[in-house]
Design a protein around this nucleic acid. Structure first.
Lengths: 263, 263
DNA sequence: CTGTATCCCCATGGATACTG
DNA sequence: CAGTATCCATGGGGATACAG
């Protein structure tokens, strides 16, 4: 691809070269992923980019390393462990992506993310739905059955009162796609079993509009986190609620919550 | 190329989509060309992008039009004449290219443009060479033979005192590649034959540093102009010098210069 | 777990000839 | 002048198997 013959000013030719550097199916996605969660292991990248094959990831990472955008770091040889992080050059691509994204927002169809709001009380689901309508396509449900049904559409976010769910929390995990961000609503005084739910955030009722909306938006920005980061953030959210209710001594004594303190 | 499955926040996914829109060998180059010189005819674009084939240009323009970045306007059917200009969306890509270019300047090898400085007086070529050294790789020559030799390397710019050239001005045009920007230096009182030289700019001696440097840089930014624009700018430069010396009445009477006033 | 090594497909892009 | 129509080459990208 010889673009050196294009008759444009030198500064323009530079922008074409950079564009060429980013004209690859996976490399920009890898850079973006690393911009959010650095550093990442090979398999963490692999799961952040569900459709990439291992050899494509290898190739892309090699190319990025060759162009000085990412850095490879061997952690251990047996078992093989490698970490990838951006170089300064790579990190400074951030404004490039911002500009691209800004243009996209102004001139491209922006698909609205979808959210499911689940609560026994239909006045509450309606209310929450209105609050989130500016950012999401909201579906409101009031029974476990309806919730299960709407979860098969893999919404970006589910906001669910744990009191609604009539199965076990493990069952919930099964029905909820991994790509769906989970925000739990809990009553005024949740019991310790909250610790066993797998979630990304927890809100304690009563809930204010600004709180719900900002936390929901924050979940969108977290899409692509590694499992570890997700777990960690969710645990922290649960813990901060529980700590505000139960004394630390009790939490450390309980099997369910004691492990939190190990991490 | 389905990138919708990439697990990154929605804003990032947008930037990937825009990148996809620009991941094409010719389309970004066409946009850049149009950003400088709008509107352009099909064949003007073709000569601004010397290595593109006609059918590639057709395809690229169709794709750009389909994505709403350029607008096609049929001027006449027989003979077929079409003009292309950017839409507002397309025009607003300018900051995108600027950001790309900025990153490129900071992190990519920037090839220095080359310039040839030709004057009989070697003290002058040395001086001008020093002035331009910050922006160009400068070659200084003091004879017509040397100049001819250095022109085969197709420098981005040639700065030549017309007094040095011992052939006809038509011969000069033959030796000077079309991709080389031509800046003429003329004495205090150039005669009317100046009008016959084919050039992009004219400077009248004595020359100040800031003047030379800024005009030379301006030439770089004009790379890619259509023939018409080039002619027009050159004519204007010659005319403004001549008008400062000869009365308009005389210029209009002379064959050489009268045609300028027709345009 | 983190990659190579192979093979294969097909979309992008180039060359050439032809047309209203 | 401003395109079609056709054919062909290349290499990016995917699937699969295997290895240290």
């Amino acid at each position: 691809m010889d673009r050196r013959t294009v008759l444009v000013p030198p500064s323009d030719r530079l922008s074409l070269e950079v564009l060429e550097l980013l004209s690859n199916k996976w490399e920009p996605a890898i850079i973006l992923t690393l911009l959010h969660h650095e550093p990442l292991r090979f398999n963490e990248l692999e799961s952040a980019l569900p459709d990439i094959s291992a050899n494509m990831l290898t190739t892309a990472l090699a190319s990025l390393a060759e162009h000085g955008l990412v850095q490879r770091q061997t952690i251990s040889d047996t078992p093989p462990q490698v970490e990838y992080e951006l170089t300064d050059s790579g990190r400074q691509l951030k404004p490039v992506f911002s500009t691209l994204s800004t243009w996209g927002q102004d001139h491209l169809e922006t698909p609205t993310p979808t959210a499911v709001v689940a609560d026994c009380d239909d006045r509450l689901t309606e209310l929450y739905g209105e609050w989130l309508a500016a950012t999401f396509d909201v579906t409101s449900v009031n029974t476990t059955a309806e919730l299960r049904e709407s979860l098969v559409n893999a919404p970006e976010l589910v906001v669910v009162d744990i009191a609604l769910w009539d199965g076990s929390m493990y069952e919930f995990e099964t029905y909820c796609p991994t790509t769906t961000r989970r925000m739990l609503l809990v009553g005024d005084r949740p019991d310790l079993s909250l610790a066993a739910w797998h979630c990304d955030d927890v809100l304690r009722k009563p809930i204010r509009k600004t709180e719900l909306v900002s936390r929901a938006k924050a979940q969108l920005e977290c899409i692509g986190q590694s499992e570890t980061e997700r777990d960690c953030a969710g645990t922290e959210a649960k813990l901060s609620i529980l700590e505000s209710i139960y004394p630390q001594s009790q939490l450390k004594a309980e099997d369910l919550t004691a492990q939190f303190y190990d991490e």
